[in-house]
């Protein structure tokens, strides 16, 4: 048994920061969103709404920046190496991911014993991370649809009519939030199930050497 090394090259400082921003904003969005959905204590509505809007804009800008940065910033795209290449390579299918999707599923279902070969990210991981991108934009869109000053604009009105009005859009907005919550739970679980080295690098930028070599 062995674990590979976690070097700073895996998550350059700029991505540690964007990850932090994401985490803080998502927590604020979920909290203020739940509060707006049902105010569970008094005297906070104005702040909650302000928080919801600011955090939304920050998340959207942060995400957009993160996407652009992927084309310019270099990071490791294999496990336990200091070798770097353009970050965008992590986003696309790599040689290491090929033919590994079902094997990864089988691994997590305990249908096979050995861990599967992968790039820095496995196939399932890559797909779910990529899915959060359109989902984040979609969530902002559904939010704007139920925001009075925006909903009359054709871009948003079309969506409202498609789903049958603001109440249905509100419910969709609500369900997408649950998707994010579920994603975060699974993400945090899988990232830390073996040990906390991944957290140390992504939150604290602290390296962990390989073990068992």
């Amino acid at each position: 048994m062995s674990t590979h090394a976690y070097y700073r090259e895996a998550h350059p400082l700029i991505f540690v920061i964007t990850h932090w921003i994401n985490l803080v904003c998502m927590v604020m969005l979920a909290f203020s969103g739940f509060y707006i959905h049902y105010p569970f204590f008094d005297g906070f509505m104005g702040v909650a709404r302000g928080m919801h809007f600011v955090a939304m804009y920050v998340v959207i800008i942060n995400l957009t920046f993160r996407i652009i940065a992927a084309f310019f910033v270099k990071s490791a795209n294999k496990m336990g190496t200091r070798e770097v290449d353009l970050d965008i390579k992590n986003w696309l299918p790599q040689e290491e991911n090929k033919h590994q999707f079902w094997e990864t599923v089988k691994y997590y279902l305990f249908l096979r014993k050995e861990g599967v070969i992968s790039g820095k990210y496995g196939s399932l991981q890559k797909i779910s991370y990529l899915a959060t991108i359109p989902l984040t934009y979609l969530q902002a869109y559904t939010g704007f649809c139920i925001y009075a000053p925006a909903m009359d604009l054709g871009f948003f009105k079309g969506g409202l009519e498609l789903v049958g009005g603001p109440m249905n859009m509100r419910i969709i907005h609500y369900f997408i939030m649950w998707v994010f919550i579920v994603f975060t739970m699974v993400h945090a679980y899988l990232a830390n199930i073996y040990n906390f080295a991944p957290s140390k690098i992504i939150f604290l930028w602290k390296e962990t050497e390989a073990k068992g070599h």
Binding site: S2, E103, V116, N195
Partner: peptide, 13 residues
């Protein structure tokens, strides 16, 4: 838990 599973030497495929 801890050190993770033994890794495969070669992809199953």
């Amino acid at each position: 838990i801890g050190d993770g599973p033994p890794m495969e030497e070669m992809k199953a495929y």
